[in-house]
Computed example of a mutant assay.
Amino acid sequence: MHSVRQPAVAGLFYPGSAQQLLKDVKQLLSDASQAQQHSPIQAKAIIVPHAGYIYSGSTAAKAFSALGPKASTIKRVVMVGPAHRVKLRGLAISDVQYFRTPLGDIPIDQEANSACLNLPEVQIMDSAHWQEHSLEVQLPFLQAVLEDFSLVPVIVGDSTSAEVQALLDLLWGGPETLIVISSDLSHFHDYSTAQYIDRSTCEAIEHFDLDHIDLKQACGSIGLKALLQAAKHRNMQVHTLGLCNSGDTSGDQERVVGYGSWAFTDKTQ
């Protein structure tokens, strides 16, 4: 019998019906593709938000639609997101065999999981994954864009960007591997304050400026900074694809959450 991580936020953050979910995701991807001012950029790594689709789905879709025609070559996705529900030290992987969404089951890359356990900061902790949304909300996008692929889901707790970078370096691979970093931006400021903070964070990402990114600016800042370190080391370039906040999508501008999406490519593109 297969062990499966069941969806925790289907019907809450995104539709619980497979038919409606696929329709919504395809529409978000289509809208994002039409809005792009450039051709697909064949990203090696992306940063995406993790709120409900009505809030951040359009911003996330801009990154997933940027994977380009080589999306069919991606066979493994390494996903890194912050812990919201469970406190933990270090990084948590899961020993289930599949992660499930209404669109089907995604196999876990057990070989990569075993390799991760060679890092001292990595532990198996299924409880960190059961109710966590930061990775789950990305899965339907991946299922819509990619073909057959496996997953390496990693939840970040009390850790350092250097520890996360060690995991990214271990699993970086070639064009068969996509890195997905999940992070929202500023939380619960008024609209104009959020815009100012999030623009500053965006500029820091564009300039690989790790000193001006912290948990107050991005809840997934540890993974985000780890990706910036890894990408800078590989002389990659970053593309800002989208930047908004919940005031743009929900209308409430008193206490907003910021969202952004970025893609990282080789400088030859």
Results as ranks from 00 to 15, higher is better:
59 T>E: 07
152 V>K: 11
69 P>S: 12
79 M>V: 13
59 T>L: 09
15 P>V: 00
99 F>A: 08
67 L>D: 10
133 H>K: 01
136 E>L: 03
48 V>C: 01
113 N>V: 09
91 L>V: 14
58 S>P: 07
43 A>M: 04
100 R>S: 14
130 W>K: 13
148 D>I: 15
51 A>K: 05
119 L>S: 03
134 S>I: 03
22 L>G: 12
112 A>S: 13
107 P>A: 07
36 Q>S: 14
90 G>H: 11
39 S>N: 08
86 V>N: 11
33 S>Q: 08
77 V>L: 12
94 S>I: 14
28 L>A: 08
97 Q>K: 14
22 L>A: 13
121 E>Y: 01
16 G>E: 02
16 G>I: 03
147 E>I: 14
42 Q>G: 15
69 P>I: 14
54 I>V: 10
90 G>K: 14
34 Q>A: 14
129 H>N: 10
104 G>H: 05
134 S>T: 10
78 V>I: 10
72 S>Y: 11
94 S>A: 13
83 A>H: 10
126 D>H: 11
148 D>N: 15
88 L>A: 07
117 L>T: 15
30 S>N: 05
92 A>N: 10
36 Q>E: 13
79 M>W: 00
52 G>M: 15
88 L>H: 06
37 Q>H: 07
30 S>L: 04
77 V>T: 13
159 S>E: 08
42 Q>S: 13
135 L>V: 12
53 Y>R: 01
136 E>R: 02
62 K>E: 15
140 P>T: 01
120 P>D: 07
116 C>Y: 00
23 K>C: 07
94 S>H: 06
152 V>C: 08
108 I>K: 07
106 I>M: 10
73 T>M: 00
100 R>Q: 15
43 A>T: 03
159 S>A: 13
113 N>P: 00
152 V>W: 02
159 S>Q: 08
100 R>G: 07
69 P>H: 13
89 R>I: 03
36 Q>L: 10
123 Q>V: 06
54 I>W: 04
68 G>C: 06
150 S>Y: 00
99 F>L: 09
145 V>A: 05
153 P>C: 07
40 P>Q: 02
81 G>R: 11
123 Q>N: 12
52 G>P: 15
76 R>H: 11
126 D>N: 12
37 Q>M: 10
95 D>M: 05
113 N>G: 05
58 S>V: 08
30 S>P: 02
41 I>E: 03
70 K>C: 01
27 Q>G: 14
73 T>G: 00
86 V>E: 06
135 L>C: 11
116 C>A: 12
116 C>G: 03
130 W>C: 06
77 V>D: 09
34 Q>F: 15
84 H>R: 07
39 S>F: 03
19 Q>I: 00
84 H>V: 02
51 A>T: 07
122 V>T: 11
103 L>A: 04
85 R>C: 07
148 D>P: 10
53 Y>V: 05
128 A>V: 09
150 S>G: 11
153 P>S: 09
86 V>T: 01
23 K>H: 09
130 W>Q: 11
145 V>C: 04
72 S>R: 13
106 I>H: 06
119 L>V: 13
